[in-house]
Write a protein that binds this DNA or RNA. Structure first.
Lengths: 193, 193, 193, 193
DNA sequence: CATGAATGAGGATTCATTCAT
DNA sequence: CATGAATGAATCCTCATTCAT
């Protein structure tokens, strides 16, 4: 499996750094190769083309988000706590990797429609898990089941996304981790039964 | 004033159509010029460069959003009603101009960081008016004044934005106008005192 | 019409020189542009792509061959004389343009199959005129009408082509024009009734 | 001797197949290696470089042409019969190996000037044998000794070559072997005393 | 004011060849 | 002898912008 080889990871990590530091449009393949410490041509032994690198950047990291969220879902805790853990973990993962935060919140959105469609496909899995928490909450009486599930999801994700993008655009100057409590409280107030 | 001349408006309108129909990356200056019925060079008599056209596209339309919102703020109605009018009017303006909806929610986000910083500058005026509604609500006891104003704003705008983007990405297949009531109710529930 | 503009001809002429001097695979677009005294991008105002330049090189010159041959066909001279004029004129045109001789006899044959198919399409018109001379000769009793017309044509063209290629590969060191009499005599002997 | 080892032949045969099936420009070394069932690097134990493979392809087969022609020359038959046997054998060898026919008549001509010079060197030996037949014919009074020997050779080879190329380009749809009689007759008529 | 022909910088990708194992 | 992962040079084309008319 190619993605288990060390150079695969080297290149994905290099891509994140190069995109974060130079911006999406200035992230040339040769720059990524140099950062990864491999020849330009080596990139193409592991990736079909440049787009394939970008998809992989998103997928590799998103896998961690999904894995964490699946673990949270399995825990024997309340719906409210699950939502808090989701928000807090999501914020934490971006807080811990400032390069990745820039890449997902700003740079990867500059891609063409086709690439974004693929990114959305990956994102969908994450949003489905969020839907599962929301449904569970509506079923167990914690959340207001008269609220449209899609609207609820858009509110949760929209609020998180806007909060994260603002934080990144302000050069991550304030403490993101302090915000998860407030975001959770607001969301719970909006959704509770 | 250049922006009062007929060709200025011709070019801005042409840009919206060309971007919406071809996507941001396929919206060449020559295509915009052709759609506007002017020569390529004429564009540069009215705009500094291509970025300037895009900023203007955003500014011209955003002026209407701001004008409408200022009018709403002046009305002698409750804070809740003001928020509803804001959401409903915002949705309506995008609902009425499907091209502009595509351009703001999808295409204009593919621009580089610098351009988006400028767009955010324009957007800020609109968000300040939203802040004014929120402050007013907190002052008159309608809204919970323990909520951080920035967080409240991010929730309101994030929810609206996520709702609009989903609608555009689903090819505007369902009725956006029906959603304003639900969005307003959710937001009020989250923010009310 | 683009091909009437001076730059069109400039570029075609430059392409012939660059290909002849550097070889087909070393004839970069930028080299052709430099030789033509225009910017790289200007090439693409007159030609769809690099292949289009090469087709045009062949077409432009071949038009002269065809025009001349059509004129020869109309003359009130014997079949033998027509064949001689064809050979002599063909040799003369390549003799007068040493660059074009290299390009057609050596370099243009290195192209891919697709391009050669297109070149053959242009060449076909010339060979059809040759067929007309041969048919006329068979009809008026000058040439042996028991010879397969296709074979006759292949003999005439094959002999000319081999003669020309040998001359070019020997760096055009001997006098090509002296050969047309011998080639004509040999061909007439082979074909005469 | 490297060329006696089994892998040498494997690689040459693989090259013919790969070039015939994919075309010269799509015949990558890695494809040839795969077809031959060896590693890419192994190619370079038997050949100096890619060009060297192509030369060898030509040489290996041309050796058969030459061997056959030498045998024909030794026979106690007339000059006319020798010429017929040469043409008939040449056609037959290409008729029996459709891949090689494609490679020599079409694909190997797409090579650069330098490689074709080398190919011509190999071909020269064959053409010298042809010259010997022609000289013999002129000496024994069968052929017209006033014809320039080089011109005679160009006519013979040019006619054969043009006939073969046409046959290959028409996808070898008609029976090549039936053409040798006609080609021989035409050539004899042209050259006879 | 308006035109549109001309400019020229910039980058993803392929593939022959090498060399450590 | 044999392998195959790694190398890195090399090029066509687009399109925002200019400026002579």
């Amino acid at each position: 499996m190619k993605r288990d080889k060390p150079k695969y990871k080297q290149i994905v990590d290099a891509a994140i750094i190069v995109i974060a530091e130079n911006g999406y449009h200035q992230a040339q393949v040769s720059k990524i190769a140099k950062e990864a410490g491999v020849a330009d041509g080596t990139i193409y032994l592991y990736f079909k083309n440049k787009e394939d690198i970008l998809i992989s950047v998103f997928k590799e990291k998103m896998a961690i988000f999904i894995e964490d969220l699946e673990e949270i879902l399995k825990r024997n805790i309340s719906t409210s706590e699950k939502l808090f853990k989701m928000i807090d973990n999501h914020f934490r993962l971006l807080h811990e990797d400032r390069y990745y935060a820039i890449v997902t919140q700003l740079e990867l959105r500059q891609t063409n429609k086709e690439l974004r469609m693929q990114i959305n496909g990956v994102l969908k899995e994450y949003l489905t898990l969020l839907d599962n928490i929301l449904k569970e909450g509506m079923d167990n009486g914690t959340l207001d089941d008269s609220i449209d599930i899609r609207l609820a999801r858009q509110m949760v994700f929209g609020t998180m996304d806007e909060t994260l993008t603002s934080w990144v655009m302000k050069d991550q100057k304030y403490d993101l981790m302090k915000l998860s409590v407030g975001v959770h409280r607001l969301i719970m107030k909006a959704l509770q039964a």
